[in-house]
């Protein structure tokens, strides 16, 4: 009896031993520090809790009803969409144009590409100091505008309610557009050369070829860039926090900064978590769409 028990034990060790060696360290870390907090954020969002006291009161959906009638939440929500829309338009539109131009250059292409993509690796915190300095009232942007006679356009970019969100979106795009360029370039390499030859024979101009051959052929890649840019914009926090902290007043407040203020600074863990769940739902849906788009080529 002991023998068979030992045998079975030995058999199961040799069966599952290596497997657990390979999986358990990762699973332990992943489940505890990623999955558990994700489930907790949903749990927290249904409580009233200051984050410290042992007393955590169950409130059901009260935080959500509060959220939906919170004017500041909707302002942040709207700002998040405006901020994301500006970034998407720049990164998809300009990103495609830059990639298309780069694909037509041979000599000097690597250096041009390197300079354009380089800001991608710079930390959002460093991007924040660079742009805060350039956008200040006496900063280099206003200095340049004044020196070329466009004084009328000069303004305190980060202090002006009408432009602050756009100025920050522009800084975000500066530091992320390189990623769009890289992905578009990869896409452009896979466009069938014969299509261009056919277009040329039909007498199409370069612009027409771009409009009627390149753009349709790049539709799947464009969708990928679109969603990646969108989710990255939705998740952003560092750049805005390090420049305006959502200000002036709330003119650059987005969901992530509002959540941080309510949750981490004002210790409203329940309410902050409800905002977190809103963010989670939006980003998850967009990522799910992305994964579906990515999976498609393999299905064919």
């Amino acid at each position: 009896m002991d023998d068979t028990l030992m045998d079975r034990l030995r058999a199961s060790v040799s069966r599952y031993g290596p497997l657990s060696l390979f999986l358990i360290p990762t699973l332990a870390i992943y489940l505890f520090f990623a999955i558990y907090p994700t489930l907790s954020v949903i749990g927290y969002s249904m409580t009233k809790w200051n984050g410290i006291s042992p007393e955590k009161t169950w409130v059901g959906f009260a935080n959500y009803t509060k959220m939906f009638s919170d004017r500041i939440f909707w302002e942040a929500f709207q700002n998040t969409f405006v901020w994301s829309a500006v970034i998407v338009v720049i990164n998809v539109g300009l990103g495609l144009v830059i990639a298309a131009l780069l694909s037509r250059v041979w000599r000097g292409r690597l250096i041009l590409q390197t300079l354009i993509v380089l800001p991608v690796v710079i930390s959002p915190m460093a991007v924040a100091t660079i742009w805060r300095w350039m956008l200040q009232p006496k900063g280099v942007i206003n200095e340049t505008l004044t020196s070329i006679g466009l004084d009328g356009l000069a303004r305190p970019w980060l202090g002006d309610p009408d432009v602050v969100l756009f100025a920050l979106a522009f800084a975000h795009s500066w530091s992320t557009i390189g990623l769009s360029v890289i992905i578009f370039l990869a896409g452009l390499q896979s466009v069938d050369e014969d299509l261009y030859d056919a277009a040329k024979i039909d007498g199409a101009t370069t612009f027409q070829a771009f409009r009627y051959v390149t753009i349709p052929a790049l539709r799947p890649v464009t969708a990928v860039v679109f969603i990646l840019t969108l989710t990255a914009a939705f998740k952003a926090f560092d750049l805005i926090w390090a420049t305006t902290k959502g200000g002036p007043i709330r003119f650059s407040e987005i969901l992530s900064t509002y959540m941080y203020k309510r949750g981490a600074l004002e210790n409203q863990y329940g309410y902050g978590s409800a905002i977190g769940v809103a963010l989670l739902v939006i980003v998850s849906l967009a990522t799910l769409l992305y994964l579906k788009l990515q999976a498609r080529p393999e299905d064919r």
């Binding site: 990623a34 558990y36 907090p37 994700t38 907790s40 954020v41 749990g43 927290y44 984050g51 989710t231 939705f234 998740k235 952003a236 926090f237 992530s256 959540m259 941080y260 949750g263 981490a264 863990y269 902050g272 978590s273 977190g276 769940v277 963010l279 989670l280 980003v283 998850s284 990522t287 799910l288 994964l291």
Partner: peptide, 10 residues
Amino acid sequence: MIPVTAIILP
């Protein structure tokens, strides 16, 4: 699909 930003409190 989990954005870090959304789960920092827990």
